[in-house]
Design a protein around this nucleic acid. Sequence first.
DNA 1: CTCCTTTGCGCAACAAGTTGCATAATCGTA
DNA 2: TACGATTATGCAACTTGTTGCGCAAAGGAG
Lengths: 181, 181
Amino acid sequence: MSLSHAILTSLLEKPCTGAELARRFDKSLGHFWQATHQQIYRELGKLEAAALLESEELPTTRGQQRQFRVLGAGRRELEEWCLRECDPRPIRDELLVRMRAAAVLGTVDVTVEMRRHRGLHEATLARYLAIEAADFPAGVPRSRADGLQRSVLLAGIAFEQAWLAWCDEALAEPEEPGTRP
Amino acid sequence: MSLSHAILTSLLEKPCTGAELARRFDKSLGHFWQATHQQIYRELGKLEAAALLESEELPTTRGQQRQFRVLGAGRRELEEWCLRECDPRPIRDELLVRMRAAAVLGTVDVTVEMRRHRGLHEATLARYLAIEAADFPAGVPRSRADGLQRSVLLAGIAFEQAWLAWCDEALAEPEEPGTRP
DNA sequence: CTCCTTTGCGCAACAAGTTGCATAATCGTA
DNA sequence: TACGATTATGCAACTTGTTGCGCAAAGGAG
């Protein structure tokens, strides 16, 4: 049930329409909890039905937009959820499964895909670093909220760096030490 | 569709029954692609229906066990899958969402949960390190397959280390620099 | 003005993952 | 030998996530 709470969080930062929420998700919270627009609309519907949100028609604009706003009950629900325990998710990565498969097959080369992933992680890292430079310039005193937001971003940066370092190490591994049967 | 291929991989390493597969998953491949026993049985059924696997009753033992074995078509499917592209999964962690929520709420303390997560990651890291020490002792020459398996394990180790370092850094962040409104 | 594209919203169907329970056989033990 | 615990298998119902499509309103190009 994290998606609904991620939505509450985002709407609490700023009330907006579903489409805008989806766009904001892509740029910020969605880095750590992805969702398609359909998931978001469905969840918005449920949250409104549960009286944690309210919506208001914006008649003059394109389509028939609805502006969503968090209600008091929604805020309380979010506070409660924040204090509940949640276990970390284990890693889940196809590339790693492929490497195990390649190990048992003995006939496939996964280094191409590893190099491709290295590039993707490099690009993601660059994106995160750009956000950090823009949103959290050095030397400026930060509020508690900013500190938390920055920590979240630093987690993303740390992971991408870990991926990169791992890719480099794994690719540097000697391919055929001659011990193969 | 990674689960079916993870199953093929594991069965290719060694044919076995569904329950044994579930147990082996917990100890090895499952570190990087988790599955419940129901998921596994369902997938085994599909794979057998698709003629990528075959099964044989083991009548003398407890319950009515079935031993599964990968067929040639299964191996070919796995080889093909190994060469297909797969994008890395973005991070998805509740704790990070909670931190964003805490940032906007301003009233909740997430450091308790962060410390708990630190402990969990520490334990996981210890598990991985123990596996590495047991399965890949230093100084012993390794086959290509062993090198790949070790790389996969090193990915797990790198992540848990990244988590730990991040937790320490985030927890060291001054809690209230007085800039809060 | 008409046609095409974009934007906002949402349904429907499906795939993947989770949870709870049911069943049958075997094992250990009292 | 009767009873509870364990092991192996699986059904059913549910939640979550994905994909493809449809529709309506607004804006822009010809």
